[in-house]
Nucleic acid binder design. Structure first.
Lengths: 120, 120, 120, 120
DNA sequence: GTGGTCTAGACCACC
DNA sequence: GTGGTCTAGACCACA
């Protein structure tokens, strides 16, 4: 996995987002075992505690669950995953709309630009 | 200014993007003088050479021009700025569409989601 | 405040419980400002991060809220506090029932013993 | 055995309580020989003198008796054990009632809450 | 070897 | 001076 981070948002939130994406995209299928915290942390080049925090947030949201001795697992509840997908999309949209506003486009203009862009 | 960077894209491209945004938004107005490279580099906490590279790209595109002795200036050509604005928007859109595709939404679905999200 | 801890439960959970009690009992009234994390941590003789974790849990439950620069405050929502009171009571009851079961008394026996004990 | 302690009550009283529980629950059966003081102290991670004090209290109450050369034994008197059980229960009840009062519930309310909680 | 907790100490943004 | 984040490193229970 290629982890990447921005400097202006907490790393643990970005980890949460990227792990969510891995689950949604099926790279971590429903019910499957996640890699150990330490391994994932080493892979992402962050402190294990930081990754722990991200995973605990995901746990609170119900997307993953921990079994103390045997590891962490993706939820088997497909609805949960579907919901995470929608929430992730909503966040992306909000962030995008905000960026476009920063550039100087209203939502309507943005929608028009996307449509036009795609037709090209 | 609050500079922020991602780990997975060249810094100079991100600098270029953010400076463009400052110009578009009028924080660096048309015709105005840009701060010295060293100051900007220190502010953004990047190597002056990196910033230099970003500015040279902006020069090549015509958004900025240099005067031998007195520094760099934002173009006075408002059309140029308008064009930069559109290009920046196009890049944002492409990146966003790509992200949404990664989550699992087509462009049509994405457009629908934005409309719905805004109405809420 | 006299903080006290058991060795067999996470400190942050006990902190959460004791702070909840302070709020319920009105020592930290609704809407009032809590002491700074560092002060409370020093007072309780725990690491600020541990106290932080307890407070963030309370925040997630809605019992307190943070204002980044000016400190943490108890919620103004009295219903929230009432609810916390009931939840705290429920936890105490569960723990007590469990203890009595460990000694060898059923719930019915325990209820009888309490009634008897009070009449004395 | 999993020993656990609170910071706000004398350790020897807590040791006494937990040993009593071991006797009541039959883990140290009536008439059986207790482990050597040093072993128990090491297990509980307390000073042998502290454990000694707890055992002397238990002796004074008649729950345990010492034989000069061969160690300490649990009493064979089942009534004694029964009595210890009731006393331990009484202590738990008092402490629990006090806690519930601290939260803001009378004994009557507490009894009602327990009944309700159990039915759920 | 797994997740969980705790400490110490640092740096940051915000006002 | 406030809360928030991150790192490094340690120890624990569990099986």
């Amino acid at each position: 996995m290629n982890w990447s981070f921005q400097t202006d948002r907490p790393i643990y939130l970005q980890l949460k987002e990227q792990i969510t994406l891995l689950i949604i995209s099926g790279q971590y299928p429903a019910g499957s075992r996640l890699p150990p915290v330490r391994d994932m942390a080493a892979d992402a080049a962050v402190n294990p505690n930081t990754l722990q925090k991200a995973l605990q947030e995901l746990e609170r949201e119900g997307l993953v669950y921990a079994q103390r001795t045997s590891g962490r697992f993706v939820t088997e509840d497909e609805k949960m995953i579907e919901q995470a997908k929608n929430q992730l999309a909503a966040e992306q949209i909000d962030r995008f709309i905000e960026k476009m506003a920063g550039i100087g486009f209203t939502v309507e203009e943005t929608l028009a630009l996307i449509s036009k862009r795609v037709k090209e």
